[in-house]
Design a protein around this nucleic acid. Structure first.
Length: 202
DNA sequence: AAAACGATCTACT
DNA sequence: GTAGATCGTTTTG
C-alpha cells in the first residue's frame, strides 16, 4: 500500500499558505502496528508567522508551542478539551508557522477508525480536526514527531488532486477574518463544515 | 485564581 | 443545517 516515499523535508520548508494548498490530495498515514490507517487530505488551514493572532506562537514561544519553532516536517499537536488537533510545521527552524489538518477522506483502516470514533457514517470518521486525530490515534505523544521518516505517522504525495479548490476565511477567529487561509477540496463530502464556497475557485 | 481557547455533541427546526 | 452547552489544558494576572 505504501508505494510512495513520505513527503520530504523540502515539501514543508515553504511558506504555510503554499504548503496548505499543496497538501490537498496528499495522504495521511498512521501505522501504530496494526492495520495501517490512511486518508486523503481535503481541508487545511494555514497559520502564518508573526502577523496572525490566531497562531499559537503569535505571542512567542511557550512549552506547548515549542514544536512550531522547530524544523519543518514535524508535527505540532495540541489538545483542545477532550480532543486534539494535528498541525504540520512549515518553514525553517525558528520560524513558527504551521498548517492545521482539518479533514481527510478515509481510505484505509475504516474499521479501526470506526472502533475509535464509534459508529458513524464513513464520510464523518475524520471530518473535522478533532475527529481526524481521534480516528488516527493522534495525541500529544506525537507532538514534535518527524513526519518525513515514514514511521508511525507520515504523509504521502497526492494521488488524486482536487477538481475544485476553494479558499475561504479562517474559521473560529473574529479578527482579520478577511484573510484567506483555509483551503479545501470543494467537492468533498468530508469537509469539516458547510462552507461559503463562493469566494474563490482556483 | 481565572480566563481564554474552539471542536464536538445533542437537541431542535 | 443550525444553536447552545459542554468540555480540559495552557497561559496569564
Amino acid at each position: 500500500m505504501v508505494s510512495h516515499r513520505p513527503l520530504p523535508l523540502s515539501f514543508y520548508d515553504r511558506d504555510p499558505v503554499t504548503v496548505a494548498r499543496a497538501l490537498l490530495g496528499c495522504v495521511l498515514v498512521s501505522d501504530a502496528g496494526g492495520a495501517p490507517i490512511s486518508g486523503r487530505i481535503v481541508e487545511t488551514e494555514a497559520y502564518t508567522a508573526g502577523d496572525d493572532p490566531a497562531n499559537h506562537a503569535f505571542r512567542g514561544p511557550t512549552r506547548r508551542n515549542a514544536a512550531m519553532f522547530g524544523p519543518p516536517g514535524r508535527a505540532y499537536v495540541y489538545g483542545i478539551h477532550t480532543h486534539h488537533c494535528l498541525n504540520v510545521v512549515t518553514e525553517e527552524e525558528g520560524t513558527a508557522s504551521a498548517v492545521l489538518l482539518r479533514a481527510v477522506e478515509p481510505l484505509d483502516g475504516l474499521a479501526a477508525m470506526a472502533a475509535r470514533r464509534g459508529a458513524v457514517r464513513a464520510a464523518d470518521l475524520a471530518r473535522g480536526p478533532g475527529r481526524l486525530c481521534r480516528a488516527f490515534g493522534v495525541d500529544r505523544g506525537l507532538d514534535g514527531w518527524d513526519l518525513t521518516a515514514g514511521a508511525r505517522l507520515w504523509l504521502l504525495p497526492a494521488e488524486r488532486l482536487p477538481v475544485r479548490v476553494a479558499v475561504t476565511p479562517r474559521v473560529g477567529v473574529t479578527a482579520a477574518a478577511d484573510r484567506l487561509l483555509r483551503f479545501c477540496d470543494a467537492d468533498s463530502p468530508c469537509l469539516s463544515r458547510r462552507l461559503p464556497i463562493a469566494e474563490k475557485d482556483l
